[in-house]
């Protein structure tokens, strides 16, 4: 009997590997979770889109829950989530701030004019340096930041209605309490 068990070892190892492979089928190998979740959001000052001379200072956001949405006029997936952002803005539940990533002001403004502006303020990050601080690697990305300035959630890729309802809204309710 002991002999047989020894020879079952390859099969057992194989089946364990299969378990992982099966799990792997439902994971996205390219989604990189941010190490910044649970850490203070990097503070930044940046020019405000469309209001020359004005600066947005992230430190001023302390004390409120806010969404930082990284987007750009050249980003096709951003158009996809734009209606969701607009709908969100209409409910007035949350203040969404935009970070216009590696973009020109004129093109960004043209997009907002055409599709509507869901943002309270849009800060600009023309050279992408703020993006690097936030670990942005694919636009759009969205950060949920709490009252103490800590990043609580990061959405990589467009926010869909499903993600909004199942993940973001419940989190916001919890944070705003």
């Amino acid at each position: 009997m002991k002999r047989t068990i020894k020879f079952l070892l390859p099969l057992v190892l194989f089946l364990i590997a299969v378990g992982f492979l099966f799990k792997g089928l439902f994971l996205d190998p390219r989604e990189v979770p941010s190490p910044l979740v649970g850490k203070p959001a990097p503070s930044f000052q940046a020019p405000v889109l469309g209001e020359a001379g004005k600066t947005f200072n992230s430190d001023d956001m302390k004390g409120q829950v806010w969404l930082l949405n990284v987007w750009a006029s050249w980003c096709a997936a951003c158009r996809e989530e734009h209606p969701v952002l607009m709908a969100m803005e209409k409910t007035g539940q949350i203040a969404t701030y935009g970070l216009d990533y590696k973009d020109t002001d004129a093109e960004a403004q043209a997009v907002l004019k055409e599709h509507g502006n869901p943002y309270k303020v849009v800060a600009t990050d023309a050279d992408g340096k703020i993006g690097i601080d936030y670990g942005v690697y694919g636009v759009p990305e969205t950060y949920v930041i709490d009252k103490t300035g800590v990043i609580r959630y990061k959405q990589i890729g467009p926010i869909t209605e499903e993600i909004l309802l199942t993940k973001i809204v419940p989190l916001l309710k919890e944070l705003q309490r």
């Binding site: 990189v32 979770p33 190490p35 910044l36 690097i132 601080d133 936030y134 670990g135």
Partner: peptide, 8 residues
């Protein structure tokens, strides 16, 4: 870099 993007 690791602080921003993780060990990835």
């Amino acid at each position: 870099l690791v602080a921003r993007y993780g060990d990835f």
